[in-house]
């Protein structure tokens, strides 16, 4: 079984982002970029399935500019077998990304497609679900546990009310939640080795004709800042203030 993993290049999660001067977006000049943390968990899960003998090949695919090669090389340093870059200079929508990935599903015929549940830049949480819908296959979103048994994916999902376990017919799309695993680190010898692994570049526009995005960003603003209040000296003062000043308890 092949596993296809989608990885996105995003602002490193440690970077404090700032809205740019003309309110058109986030200031990304000279900003450290990394693999989206949820995508890193997706890569790790695929590698663990391969190490358990449940998969033969892990293919990582990214969509974006040539710079996304860095994230694909990183995923290959972690252990992915080969990479595919679907190159585009535009900022692709979730729907366009999902259409591109569905072409990869057709071409590679994977048993599992694993994605992060959301990227930490746009926070959309939709590409995996759209992909599963386009392909007409099962989806296991927000996964915190994944096993393969008798040709089915058994996935435990983090839902608002607790945990829910589903059995999915393969092929299936899985999106990862934070507690699915703790990703490994890439070691230097593997980083060197990853440079020799196959990385194919395809033109996104050739695969799926681009279409005008339906959802466009008009402007981006910094959130209204909450002002710090005051420190209280002790519990008595705290309860007094909550009762008589804030009036939130009686």
């Amino acid at each position: 079984m092949k596993i296809l993993v989608a990885v996105k290049r995003v602002v490193d999660y440690n970077v404090k982002v700032r809205v740019n001067a003309d309110n058109s977006g986030i200031d990304l000049a000279n900003t450290k970029m990394s693999i989206n943390p949820f995508c890193e968990i997706a890569v790790e899960e695929a590698l663990r399935l391969k190490e358990k003998g449940l998969a033969d090949e892990v293919i990582v695919v990214s969509i974006g500019s040539r710079k996304c090669e860095e994230q694909l090389r990183y995923a290959m340093a972690l252990g992915a077998d080969r990479g595919i870059l679907l190159e585009t200079d535009s900022t692709p929508s979730s729907l366009y990304c999902a259409k591109l990935l569905s072409k990869m599903v057709e071409k590679e015929n994977p048993g599992l497609i694993i994605l992060g549940k959301q990227s930490i830049d746009s926070d959309n949480n939709q590409t995996g679900q759209i992909l599963a819908g386009l392909c007409g296959i099962a989806q296991g979103t927000f996964a915190s546990e994944l096993t393969i048994e008798g040709g089915q994916a058994i996935v435990t999902r983090e839902v608002d009310s607790g945990l829910q376990t589903l059995s999915l017919t393969l092929p299936a799309v899985i999106t990862t939640d934070l507690r699915l695993n703790e990703p490994r680190y890439a070691k230097l010898p593997q980083i060197m080795k990853a440079k020799k692994k196959p990385l194919e570049t395809l033109s996104a526009e050739t695969l799926v004709a681009p279409f005008a995005p339906q959802v466009t960003t008009q402007r981006v603003d910094a959130p209204t800042q909450r002002k710090a209040g005051s420190k209280v000296a002790n519990v008595e003062e705290l309860i007094n203030k909550l009762k008589n000043e804030a009036k939130v308890i009686s």
């Binding site: 999902a98 949480n125 819908g133 983090e158 839902v159």
Partner: peptide, 21 residues
């Protein structure tokens, strides 16, 4: 978690781009 699971898939079937949250 239910809405986020289902709505983007429904949008895919309608060939539209959904908006989250």
């Amino acid at each position: 978690t239910n809405g986020k699971d289902v709505l983007p898939r429904a949008a895919a079937l309608l060939d539209i781009e959904p908006i989250s949250e």
